[in-house]
Nucleic acid binder design. Sequence first.
DNA 1: GGTGAAATCCAAAGCGCTTTGGAAAACTGA
DNA 2: TCAGTTTTCCAAAGCGCTTTGGATTTCACC
Lengths: 343, 343
Amino acid sequence: MNLKELSHNLGLSQTTVSRALNGYPEVSPATRRRVEEAAKTFNYSPSTRAKGLATGQALAIGHVIPLSSKHEMVNPIFGDFIAGAGETYSRHGYEMILSIVDDDDERRIYEGLKSRRAVDGVIVHGPRMNEPRIGLLQDLGLPFAVHGRASGYDKPYAWLDVNNRSAFQRATDFLFDLGHRRIALINGLEVMDFAHRRREGYTASLRAHDIAVDAALMRSGEMTEVFGYQSTRDMLAGDDAPTAIISSSLISALGVRRAIEEKGLVMGKDVSVVTHDDALSYLQNGGDVPIFTATRSSVRDAGRKLAEMLLHSISNPNLPPQSVLLEAELMVGSSTGPAPRKD
Amino acid sequence: MNLKELSHNLGLSQTTVSRALNGYPEVSPATRRRVEEAAKTFNYSPSTRAKGLATGQALAIGHVIPLSSKHEMVNPIFGDFIAGAGETYSRHGYEMILSIVDDDDERRIYEGLKSRRAVDGVIVHGPRMNEPRIGLLQDLGLPFAVHGRASGYDKPYAWLDVNNRSAFQRATDFLFDLGHRRIALINGLEVMDFAHRRREGYTASLRAHDIAVDAALMRSGEMTEVFGYQSTRDMLAGDDAPTAIISSSLISALGVRRAIEEKGLVMGKDVSVVTHDDALSYLQNGGDVPIFTATRSSVRDAGRKLAEMLLHSISNPNLPPQSVLLEAELMVGSSTGPAPRKD
DNA sequence: GGTGAAATCCAAAGCGCTTTGGAAAACTGA
DNA sequence: TCAGTTTTCCAAAGCGCTTTGGATTTCACC
């Protein structure tokens, strides 16, 4: 069923039907009702493509997911973020189009999306330090919003980020308050902007407590369970083992716990653990009482909000770029406790 | 830059330029080269919408992800599957459009996709028992392919599935061979088709070994770490605790391990564990030597293949529906060992 | 050099919608 | 009753592409 058929069916012109359906005022209420009902019974909805052609809008947002062929890891966050953004889109009648892209092809992909007029804007995932995509998108004039930020790029642009620095500083402070002095950081890849900021928060706290930064207590890598396990095992093996560990991801934290328990130690007593928790739906940090003390911030929520921001900036193109900094909440669970006294 | 401008620039008609770009034979090689170069330097690519309108193709595949508002869980498999499918699409010049949908809205969404002519076909995720979506899509005449199968629907349709039944039967047999007799199953939600089949495989093996099915040894729920942990803790607490546990997901298996170790038992010695492993990129089952003995089948690979199947069936509409049954490989890790002798 | 065939190109219609510029019909109020 | 509004509707152009049907040019061959 298309507009032509529908309007013929109603004995009206396409103009009138189109106007009735799109809420224009120059249609009598009676006609409008009649049209709307017909549209429903014939299950008519306008072709996105034709509509897009006519209006110049795509009514779609692109999500470009870089997937370096080197470390072929799909970000575990991704599903939840998308779910959040998807809610927003469907509420606004937008579609989400996804491109999984090899790092090297990114430029080409953005140019393609732009020149094919396939999307009205894009969301940038996983920004790194000095992220080149941001400049590229600004040059292209394709509206965008970044999930995270890119240190080193100073012109204004739209982003939404968790305050990773303050979250990790607070987490470290918290451990200091419990008496810990040897605090380790098991971080994500530090080319990623978020990981960089987390380390900054961590070191800032150390400095504030007059504790030297010890490279032996810092690890950086893909945040897998095994990575958390191995890092912890190694660090606990040394003489001067940490009494507390901060992990960048709940998945790694599971590995941290395993290494601790394997050594016959008790988490929250012998070794305290704080982790960042993205509140992923399939990886919940316990029930009412969290297992891990965590800096918590829902990625799903971030998806919802960032999508909202992007749509808003698309319909108000002259607004200056908006940015949102979310504070993670520190949830105290049973994985932390006072530092064990030295015997 | 659009076709009109480009062709004007070249002093050719739109027809010729279009033909040159689309590989039609009635263009001289010299002209074609000239056109291709111009397209590259002007960074021209045809508008998807206009092209779609003209050809009647969408050059896009829809992925509809149901997200019941009750259990708001995003399938952890999802990211990897999408990554696989995405590879295929970009290789074939297709776009992937994603709809996150509340269960109740699904019918409406499919009808919308169809009547808006937004996609050439869809992938169905997470089929349940007697999945109603399959019949709906067949009625609509929208090409589709299912990731998994739907027991209870008997007309032919395109699907790709892991042989869940044989995988879990093999896993159970394997444990029997090691001397285990009390074997537990920690399964996914059994309204999901895959979980149902896994249980069938499990019970088939029990029957073949003349062991009665014991409801106390079977759990079914969302496959979280906590679920694995709690189920295991409960079962190990009883008199007649299992000596082996089969888990439906690596995430739950992490919880299983935790419960085992918490009780001071050793996995692979006191209690054996076999898990299904979807080979998710962010949740690897150890390095070279797998931690868990597992029935393994890459979800990413499934995504690649299923997308391929769907595209193939779209370009060959008269082919009968194809279906692929993948066999999971049984990888022996260190989480299994001979059944402990009774003292 | 002339013929028919092959190679090369083009104008214009059409895909399904929105929107502009008017026309016709239905109301007003004097 | 009739001019002036307001309401209600419509024909047709245009969005950027593909494709049909045809025109023109080039080529091979006698």
